[in-house]
């Protein structure tokens, strides 16, 4: 015992280094654990506050560009207004609103921090629990999909961007509905990889990729991007395609957070079925 203590004291630098390194690894491994994700990320009020100040300054310089995007979207929405459509001259026309239940609700939010050059990129948004944001909600920009919420504090939330090692979103080709999944290979913030497209699909350059119903987080039919190139590796029954993302994740500023009101119901049904089958 005495020798051990003497040894530890003699090599205290290395011992302490290893001890601290263990702490660092513990933080890394626990990144998804509740404490880890709650303490050490940018939805933490102090850090998010600092980012908010920086974002406010930056936003001022991007106002013109941002205005254009929002004006375009306004014009698009204006086209959908009721007053633009002629009334149908039928006397017995009733619209039973109760037949439809709203499944998705949108909350507008601002991105206060984002990055594109790491292997795991995150966004910080200026909305949180007080605004009704929860974990696993989808984030889209006016141009396309952006990411998924992973953690919320009272007034901020942090989200995995599409440019994240562990994110993969279920997508489909718009023209023939073949499913595939999209993930990021870490090379450029403008492109993602679409894998598992079956070879009988007549995939072409320029095809539109949209989100599919299977993802459960994103509503179906949101634009993801367009096919830039595709290839089929030897002995691989699937195509791998390079997709140019329609949203510019480096400049993203105004976003919408989407809540799927039926998500809990769907998830609980799916887990129930799963556990019943397993038993």
């Amino acid at each position: 015992m005495r020798n051990l203590i003497a040894f530890l004291i003699k090599h205290n630098f290395i011992v302490l280094f290893l001890l601290l390194q263990v702490i660092a690894f513990w933080l890394m491994v626990n990144r998804n654990g509740y404490q880890g994700s709650h303490v050490l990320n940018t939805s933490n009020a102090a850090v998010a506050g600092a980012y908010q100040t920086a974002a406010n300054t930056k936003e001022y310089f991007a106002l013109k560009n941002e205005n254009d995007i929002l004006a375009n979207e306004n014009a698009m929405l204006r086209n959908l207004l009721k007053s633009n459509y002629a009334a149908i001259p039928l006397k017995s026309y009733t619209l039973k609103d109760t037949l439809y239940m709203q499944q998705y609700t949108y909350t507008s939010a601002k991105v206060v921090n984002t990055s594109v050059n790491k292997r795991r990129n995150y966004l910080t948004l200026n909305v949180g629990k007080n605004q009704g944001i929860e974990k696993d909600m989808a984030i889209i920009s006016p141009e396309g999909i952006v990411g998924i919420v992973v953690d919320v504090s009272a007034n901020y939330s942090s989200a995995m961007s599409l440019l994240h090692k562990d994110v993969s979103v279920n997508c489909q080709l718009k023209k023939d509905n073949n499913y595939g999944s999209i993930s990021w290979d870490g090379s450029s913030y403008e492109y993602c990889l679409l894998t598992d497209i079956p070879t009988h699909s007549r995939i072409k350059k320029g095809d539109t990729v949209i989100t599919s119903e299977l993802s459960g987080i994103f509503p179906q039919g949101l634009i993801v991007g367009t096919i830039e190139s595709f290839e089929r590796k030897q002995n691989d029954p699937f195509y791998t395609a390079k997709v140019k993302l329609s949203s510019n994740l480096k400049k993203v500023n105004h976003v919408y957070v989407i809540k799927n009101k039926f998500k809990n119901e769907r998830d609980s049904l799916e887990t129930k079925t799963q556990t019943q089958l397993d038993n």
């Binding site: 601290l20 660092a24 933080l27 890394m28 994700s37 850090v47 600092a50 980012y51």
Partner: peptide, 17 residues
């Protein structure tokens, strides 16, 4: 640095090295 980069432990470990 980890707090600001959302990378729990990664920069801590690297800075120690």
């Amino acid at each position: 640095i980890d707090l600001f980069c959302n990378s729990s432990g990664l920069h801590t470990s690297s800075a120690l090295v």
